[in-house]
């Protein structure tokens, strides 16, 4: 049983063309995990309307984005593994 259809791992800043592609493909039933500069999406205030959003804690903290607003779950490195195991497919953007 998979909890998510596709886990999208996005490590690109919101200005990177791949970020737009990723968000366009994100569907209901998917999960979005923001890492590295991908977490800047949280400050750009552009959280997607569909899918469940996660953000990697050390990257969030490093950029001073602690306690982000909106429907986002902050996770640790170890959670990345279980997230990928919960997904049917993984796309690393």
């Amino acid at each position: 049983m998979s909890s998510f259809d596709t886990l999208h791992i996005l490590n690109k800043s919101p200005e990177h063309p791949r970020a737009a592609q990723c968000l366009a493909l994100l569907s209901k039933g998917d999960a979005l995990l923001l890492t590295e500069n991908g977490v800047l999406l949280l400050s750009a205030g552009r959280l997607p309307a569909v899918g469940k959003v996660f953000a990697l804690s050390p990257d969030v903290s490093a950029r001073g984005l602690g306690n982000p607003v909106g429907d986002v779950t902050v996770v640790e490195f170890g959670d990345m593994v279980s997230l990928s195991l919960q997904a049917q497919r993984v796309i690393s953007w």
Partner: peptide, 13 residues
Amino acid sequence: NGALLEQYDHTAF
């Protein structure tokens, strides 16, 4: 498109 990527377990750049 999405339909193509769905055929693979893992997609990576």
